[in-house]
Design a protein around this nucleic acid. Structure first.
Length: 333
DNA sequence: AACAGTCTCAACCGCCTCGAG
DNA sequence: TCTCGAGGCGGTTGAGACTGT
Protein backbone atom coordinates (compact mmCIF):
# COMPACT_ATOMS: atom_id res chain seq x y z
CA UNK A 1 0.00 0.00 0.00
CA UNK A 2 1.50 3.34 -0.99
CA UNK A 3 2.28 5.58 1.91
CA UNK A 4 -0.18 8.40 2.23
CA UNK A 5 1.71 11.62 2.46
CA UNK A 6 0.62 14.23 4.92
CA UNK A 7 0.29 17.87 4.01
CA UNK A 8 0.44 17.24 0.28
CA UNK A 9 -2.81 17.60 -1.52
CA UNK A 10 -4.89 19.67 -3.87
CA UNK A 11 -6.12 22.93 -2.45
CA UNK A 12 -4.58 22.56 0.99
CA UNK A 13 -4.20 25.94 2.57
CA UNK A 14 -0.99 27.12 4.20
CA UNK A 15 0.03 30.10 6.21
CA UNK A 16 -1.76 32.02 8.91
CA UNK A 17 -5.01 30.64 10.22
CA UNK A 18 -8.14 32.71 9.90
CA UNK A 19 -10.60 33.26 12.71
CA UNK A 20 -13.10 31.16 10.81
CA UNK A 21 -10.71 28.23 10.58
CA UNK A 22 -9.91 28.51 14.28
CA UNK A 23 -13.58 28.46 15.06
CA UNK A 24 -14.14 25.29 13.03
CA UNK A 25 -11.21 23.51 14.64
CA UNK A 26 -12.18 24.50 18.18
CA UNK A 27 -15.74 23.48 17.56
CA UNK A 28 -14.75 20.08 16.19
CA UNK A 29 -12.32 19.28 19.00
CA UNK A 30 -14.85 20.46 21.55
CA UNK A 31 -17.35 17.97 20.19
CA UNK A 32 -15.06 15.05 19.35
CA UNK A 33 -11.91 15.53 21.37
CA UNK A 34 -8.28 15.45 20.30
CA UNK A 35 -6.68 12.72 18.24
CA UNK A 36 -7.13 11.28 14.79
CA UNK A 37 -5.63 14.39 13.35
CA UNK A 38 -5.46 13.01 9.86
CA UNK A 39 -9.23 12.88 9.62
CA UNK A 40 -9.97 16.12 11.39
CA UNK A 41 -9.60 18.49 8.41
CA UNK A 42 -12.21 16.69 6.32
CA UNK A 43 -14.60 16.21 9.22
CA UNK A 44 -14.20 19.75 10.43
CA UNK A 45 -14.44 21.25 6.96
CA UNK A 46 -10.91 22.58 6.91
CA UNK A 47 -8.58 22.71 3.94
CA UNK A 48 -5.55 22.03 6.09
CA UNK A 49 -3.44 18.97 6.70
CA UNK A 50 -3.90 17.12 9.96
CA UNK A 51 -0.49 18.05 11.16
CA UNK A 52 -1.19 21.72 10.70
CA UNK A 53 -4.42 21.30 12.69
CA UNK A 54 -2.59 19.55 15.51
CA UNK A 55 0.05 22.28 15.70
CA UNK A 56 -2.52 25.03 15.57
CA UNK A 57 -4.43 23.41 18.41
CA UNK A 58 -1.51 22.50 20.67
CA UNK A 59 0.46 25.69 20.16
CA UNK A 60 -2.25 28.26 20.00
CA UNK A 61 -5.87 27.26 20.47
CA UNK A 62 -5.73 24.83 23.38
CA UNK A 63 -7.55 26.52 26.26
CA UNK A 64 -5.03 25.30 28.85
CA UNK A 65 -2.25 27.26 27.22
CA UNK A 66 -0.84 30.13 29.18
CA UNK A 67 0.10 32.96 26.91
CA UNK A 68 1.85 36.24 27.31
CA UNK A 69 4.88 37.39 29.23
CA UNK A 70 7.10 34.82 30.86
CA UNK A 71 7.57 35.36 34.56
CA UNK A 72 10.98 35.60 36.12
CA UNK A 73 10.42 32.24 37.73
CA UNK A 74 9.63 30.69 34.36
CA UNK A 75 12.76 32.22 32.89
CA UNK A 76 14.86 30.72 35.66
CA UNK A 77 13.35 27.31 35.15
CA UNK A 78 13.90 27.42 31.42
CA UNK A 79 17.49 28.50 31.87
CA UNK A 80 18.20 25.82 34.42
CA UNK A 81 16.59 23.11 32.35
CA UNK A 82 18.34 24.25 29.21
CA UNK A 83 21.65 23.98 31.03
CA UNK A 84 20.84 20.37 31.73
CA UNK A 85 18.95 19.27 28.64
CA UNK A 86 20.00 21.60 25.88
CA UNK A 87 17.43 22.20 23.15
CA UNK A 88 15.07 19.52 24.40
CA UNK A 89 12.10 21.83 24.35
CA UNK A 90 9.52 19.18 24.97
CA UNK A 91 11.30 18.11 28.16
CA UNK A 92 11.57 21.71 29.29
CA UNK A 93 7.91 22.27 28.48
CA UNK A 94 6.93 19.43 30.82
CA UNK A 95 8.18 21.53 33.71
CA UNK A 96 6.03 24.44 32.56
CA UNK A 97 2.74 22.64 31.93
CA UNK A 98 0.89 25.59 30.50
CA UNK A 99 3.61 26.59 28.07
CA UNK A 100 4.20 24.88 24.75
CA UNK A 101 7.57 23.70 23.58
CA UNK A 102 7.26 26.00 20.61
CA UNK A 103 6.64 29.02 22.78
CA UNK A 104 9.55 28.16 25.06
CA UNK A 105 11.78 27.60 22.07
CA UNK A 106 10.86 30.97 20.64
CA UNK A 107 11.34 32.71 23.94
CA UNK A 108 14.72 31.12 24.39
CA UNK A 109 15.90 32.10 20.94
CA UNK A 110 14.63 35.65 21.09
CA UNK A 111 15.25 36.59 24.74
CA UNK A 112 17.07 34.24 27.06
CA UNK A 113 19.79 33.17 24.65
CA UNK A 114 20.71 36.74 23.88
CA UNK A 115 20.69 37.63 27.53
CA UNK A 116 23.18 34.91 28.38
CA UNK A 117 25.42 35.91 25.50
CA UNK A 118 25.29 39.53 26.60
CA UNK A 119 26.44 38.40 30.02
CA UNK A 120 29.37 36.54 28.56
CA UNK A 121 27.91 33.08 28.91
CA UNK A 122 27.88 30.49 26.20
CA UNK A 123 24.22 29.81 25.46
CA UNK A 124 25.01 26.20 24.56
CA UNK A 125 27.34 25.11 27.35
CA UNK A 126 26.15 27.65 29.93
CA UNK A 127 29.74 28.30 30.84
CA UNK A 128 31.58 31.59 30.65
CA UNK A 129 32.79 32.36 27.18
CA UNK A 130 36.52 31.74 27.43
CA UNK A 131 37.78 34.16 24.85
CA UNK A 132 35.59 37.15 25.41
CA UNK A 133 34.55 39.42 28.20
CA UNK A 134 30.89 39.93 28.82
CA UNK A 135 29.49 42.90 27.07
CA UNK A 136 29.11 45.88 29.34
CA UNK A 137 25.62 46.49 30.51
CA UNK A 138 23.67 49.40 29.13
CA UNK A 139 24.87 51.63 31.89
CA UNK A 140 28.31 51.41 33.40
CA UNK A 141 28.57 50.10 36.94
CA UNK A 142 30.35 52.32 39.33
CA UNK A 143 32.22 50.63 42.09
CA UNK A 144 32.23 52.86 45.11
CA UNK A 145 35.59 53.87 46.41
CA UNK A 146 34.36 53.06 49.87
CA UNK A 147 33.51 49.56 48.86
CA UNK A 148 35.41 47.34 51.23
CA UNK A 149 33.13 44.45 51.65
CA UNK A 150 34.72 42.24 49.11
CA UNK A 151 38.17 43.26 48.04
CA UNK A 152 38.67 39.93 46.33
CA UNK A 153 36.01 40.77 43.86
CA UNK A 154 37.59 44.12 43.21
CA UNK A 155 40.88 42.47 42.51
CA UNK A 156 39.25 40.58 39.71
CA UNK A 157 38.63 43.84 37.94
CA UNK A 158 41.20 45.62 35.92
CA UNK A 159 41.91 47.98 38.76
CA UNK A 160 41.59 51.49 37.50
CA UNK A 161 38.48 51.11 35.42
CA UNK A 162 35.23 52.23 36.85
CA UNK A 163 33.10 50.58 34.23
CA UNK A 164 32.65 46.92 34.99
CA UNK A 165 30.33 44.03 34.53
CA UNK A 166 29.37 41.52 37.13
CA UNK A 167 32.50 39.86 38.43
CA UNK A 168 31.40 36.42 37.49
CA UNK A 169 32.65 35.86 33.99
CA UNK A 170 36.20 35.12 35.11
CA UNK A 171 35.02 31.93 36.73
CA UNK A 172 32.06 31.12 38.80
CA UNK A 173 34.02 28.48 40.66
CA UNK A 174 36.46 31.04 41.91
CA UNK A 175 33.71 33.53 42.63
CA UNK A 176 31.78 31.26 44.91
CA UNK A 177 34.31 31.36 47.79
CA UNK A 178 34.51 35.12 47.46
CA UNK A 179 30.81 35.45 47.75
CA UNK A 180 30.83 33.17 50.72
CA UNK A 181 33.54 35.11 52.50
CA UNK A 182 31.67 38.32 51.95
CA UNK A 183 28.47 37.58 53.74
CA UNK A 184 26.55 34.47 53.08
CA UNK A 185 25.38 33.69 56.56
CA UNK A 186 21.84 34.61 55.96
CA UNK A 187 19.45 35.25 58.75
CA UNK A 188 16.15 33.67 59.52
CA UNK A 189 14.24 34.73 56.44
CA UNK A 190 14.45 36.52 53.16
CA UNK A 191 13.82 39.89 54.73
CA UNK A 192 17.32 39.78 56.11
CA UNK A 193 18.52 40.34 52.60
CA UNK A 194 16.65 43.57 52.55
CA UNK A 195 18.24 44.76 55.78
CA UNK A 196 21.62 44.31 54.28
CA UNK A 197 20.68 46.32 51.24
CA UNK A 198 19.52 49.17 53.38
CA UNK A 199 22.90 49.64 54.92
CA UNK A 200 25.02 49.03 51.89
CA UNK A 201 26.46 51.18 49.18
CA UNK A 202 25.33 50.77 45.61
CA UNK A 203 28.13 48.43 44.73
CA UNK A 204 27.92 46.27 47.77
CA UNK A 205 24.23 46.10 47.11
CA UNK A 206 25.05 44.60 43.78
CA UNK A 207 27.42 42.13 45.39
CA UNK A 208 24.87 41.41 48.04
CA UNK A 209 22.42 40.59 45.38
CA UNK A 210 24.75 38.07 43.82
CA UNK A 211 25.66 36.58 47.18
CA UNK A 212 22.11 36.44 48.39
CA UNK A 213 20.83 34.69 45.36
CA UNK A 214 23.68 32.20 45.28
CA UNK A 215 23.23 31.45 48.96
CA UNK A 216 19.52 31.29 48.69
CA UNK A 217 19.54 28.85 45.81
CA UNK A 218 22.31 26.86 47.42
CA UNK A 219 20.36 26.59 50.63
CA UNK A 220 17.19 25.60 48.89
CA UNK A 221 19.00 22.84 47.07
CA UNK A 222 20.81 21.77 50.18
CA UNK A 223 17.67 21.67 52.24
CA UNK A 224 16.07 19.41 49.68
CA UNK A 225 19.08 17.24 49.17
CA UNK A 226 20.24 17.11 52.76
CA UNK A 227 17.06 15.32 53.61
CA UNK A 228 18.38 12.54 51.48
CA UNK A 229 21.76 12.55 53.12
CA UNK A 230 20.36 12.35 56.60
CA UNK A 231 18.25 9.38 55.80
CA UNK A 232 20.38 6.38 56.80
CA UNK A 233 18.98 4.01 54.22
CA UNK A 234 18.93 6.39 51.34
CA UNK A 235 21.11 6.76 48.36
CA UNK A 236 21.57 10.44 47.64
CA UNK A 237 21.31 10.03 43.93
CA UNK A 238 18.23 7.92 43.86
CA UNK A 239 15.00 9.76 43.07
CA UNK A 240 12.86 7.65 45.34
CA UNK A 241 15.14 8.01 48.30
CA UNK A 242 14.70 11.73 48.25
CA UNK A 243 10.97 11.66 48.46
CA UNK A 244 11.09 9.06 51.19
CA UNK A 245 13.56 10.93 53.30
CA UNK A 246 11.79 14.19 52.68
CA UNK A 247 8.84 12.78 54.52
CA UNK A 248 11.01 12.25 57.60
CA UNK A 249 12.66 15.59 57.41
CA UNK A 250 9.76 17.73 56.47
CA UNK A 251 6.29 17.37 57.86
CA UNK A 252 4.81 19.61 55.27
CA UNK A 253 5.84 21.90 52.51
CA UNK A 254 4.84 24.83 54.65
CA UNK A 255 7.17 23.67 57.40
CA UNK A 256 9.96 23.57 54.92
CA UNK A 257 9.06 26.96 53.61
CA UNK A 258 9.20 28.54 57.02
CA UNK A 259 12.09 26.58 58.43
CA UNK A 260 14.24 26.65 55.38
CA UNK A 261 17.66 26.63 56.77
CA UNK A 262 19.33 29.91 56.15
CA UNK A 263 21.33 29.65 59.34
CA UNK A 264 24.07 27.37 58.18
CA UNK A 265 27.19 29.20 59.34
CA UNK A 266 29.96 29.56 56.80
CA UNK A 267 27.88 27.59 54.42
CA UNK A 268 30.11 26.00 51.84
CA UNK A 269 28.04 25.16 48.83
CA UNK A 270 30.94 23.89 46.77
CA UNK A 271 32.14 21.62 49.55
CA UNK A 272 28.66 20.36 50.06
CA UNK A 273 28.42 19.41 46.42
CA UNK A 274 31.69 17.54 46.56
CA UNK A 275 30.41 15.35 49.37
CA UNK A 276 27.84 13.46 47.48
CA UNK A 277 27.74 14.29 43.87
CA UNK A 278 30.15 13.56 41.09
CA UNK A 279 32.16 16.29 39.47
CA UNK A 280 30.02 16.56 36.38
CA UNK A 281 26.86 17.01 38.39
CA UNK A 282 28.51 19.51 40.66
CA UNK A 283 29.61 21.40 37.60
CA UNK A 284 26.06 21.40 36.29
CA UNK A 285 24.66 22.74 39.53
CA UNK A 286 27.25 25.47 39.60
CA UNK A 287 26.10 26.23 36.10
CA UNK A 288 22.49 26.52 37.19
CA UNK A 289 23.44 28.81 40.01
CA UNK A 290 25.51 30.91 37.72
CA UNK A 291 22.69 31.20 35.25
CA UNK A 292 20.33 32.18 38.00
CA UNK A 293 22.62 34.97 38.97
CA UNK A 294 23.59 36.07 35.52
CA UNK A 295 20.22 36.04 33.91
CA UNK A 296 19.18 38.91 36.07
CA UNK A 297 18.27 42.39 34.99
CA UNK A 298 21.16 44.70 34.08
CA UNK A 299 23.40 44.87 37.08
CA UNK A 300 23.03 48.59 37.50
CA UNK A 301 19.31 48.31 37.91
CA UNK A 302 19.18 46.76 41.33
CA UNK A 303 15.68 46.76 42.62
CA UNK A 304 15.62 45.31 46.09
CA UNK A 305 11.90 44.63 46.18
CA UNK A 306 11.97 42.83 42.89
CA UNK A 307 15.01 40.94 43.91
CA UNK A 308 13.42 39.65 47.06
CA UNK A 309 10.50 38.59 44.92
CA UNK A 310 12.83 36.93 42.45
CA UNK A 311 14.60 34.93 45.11
CA UNK A 312 11.34 33.93 46.64
CA UNK A 313 9.98 32.93 43.26
CA UNK A 314 12.97 30.81 42.36
CA UNK A 315 13.07 29.28 45.78
CA UNK A 316 9.38 28.53 45.75
CA UNK A 317 9.75 26.51 42.61
CA UNK A 318 12.46 24.41 44.19
CA UNK A 319 10.36 23.97 47.29
CA UNK A 320 7.45 22.86 45.19
CA UNK A 321 9.67 20.46 43.26
CA UNK A 322 11.92 18.80 45.84
CA UNK A 323 12.89 16.14 43.32
CA UNK A 324 13.85 18.77 40.81
CA UNK A 325 17.48 17.73 40.42
CA UNK A 326 16.68 14.06 40.26
CA UNK A 327 13.98 14.46 37.68
CA UNK A 328 16.73 15.25 35.22
CA UNK A 329 18.43 11.94 35.80
CA UNK A 330 15.18 10.05 35.72
CA UNK A 331 14.31 11.59 32.38
CA UNK A 332 17.74 10.96 30.97
CA UNK A 333 17.63 7.35 32.11
C1' DA B 1 5.36 60.52 6.70
C1' DA B 2 8.20 57.21 4.52
C1' DC B 3 11.51 53.98 4.40
C1' DA B 4 14.86 50.48 6.02
C1' DG B 5 16.43 47.50 9.35
C1' DT B 6 15.36 44.53 13.22
C1' DC B 7 12.58 41.67 16.05
C1' DT B 8 8.96 38.39 17.22
C1' DC B 9 6.57 34.28 16.95
C1' DA B 10 3.13 31.41 14.39
C1' DA B 11 3.60 28.08 11.18
C1' DC B 12 6.00 24.97 8.30
C1' DC B 13 9.41 21.31 7.11
C1' DG B 14 11.57 17.14 7.49
C1' DC B 15 13.21 13.72 10.38
C1' DC B 16 12.44 10.58 14.29
C1' DT B 17 9.95 7.44 17.44
C1' DC B 18 6.76 4.15 18.53
C1' DG B 19 2.82 1.21 18.32
C1' DA B 20 -0.08 -1.68 15.43
C1' DG B 21 -0.50 -5.24 12.29
C1' DT C 1 11.32 -8.83 12.23
C1' DC C 2 9.57 -5.63 9.07
C1' DT C 3 6.52 -2.04 7.26
C1' DC C 4 3.48 1.61 7.77
C1' DG C 5 1.40 5.65 9.54
C1' DA C 6 0.27 8.87 13.37
C1' DG C 7 2.11 11.82 16.24
C1' DG C 8 6.16 14.17 18.28
C1' DC C 9 10.12 16.94 17.94
C1' DG C 10 13.63 20.53 16.84
C1' DG C 11 15.24 23.67 13.31
C1' DT C 12 13.97 27.13 10.20
C1' DT C 13 11.22 30.52 7.73
C1' DG C 14 8.75 34.57 6.68
C1' DA C 15 4.86 37.85 7.49
C1' DG C 16 3.76 41.37 10.29
C1' DA C 17 4.96 44.45 14.05
C1' DC C 18 8.10 47.48 15.85
C1' DT C 19 11.92 50.88 15.98
C1' DG C 20 15.16 54.13 14.36
C1' DT C 21 16.46 57.55 11.00
Amino acid sequence: MPKKQCCIGEGLKKGAWSAEEDKKLISYIHDHGEGGWRDIPAKAGLKRCGKSCRLRWTNYLKPDNKRGEFSYEEEQIITMLHASHGNKWSIIARHLPKRTDNEIKNYWNTHLKKRLIDKGIDSVTHKPLASSNPKPTTEPNKFDSQEESNPDVHSSQSGSTSSVSLPVSSSFNSTMPKIRSYETTLESDFLSCKKRFERSSSTSRLLNKVAARASSIGNILSTSIEGTLRSPSSSPCHPNSLSQSSEHMIDSKEDLRTSIDLNIPEYDFSKFLEQFINDDEAENIRGYSQDLIMSDVPSTLVDEDNMIGDITGSSSYLLDHPNFMYDFEAEQD
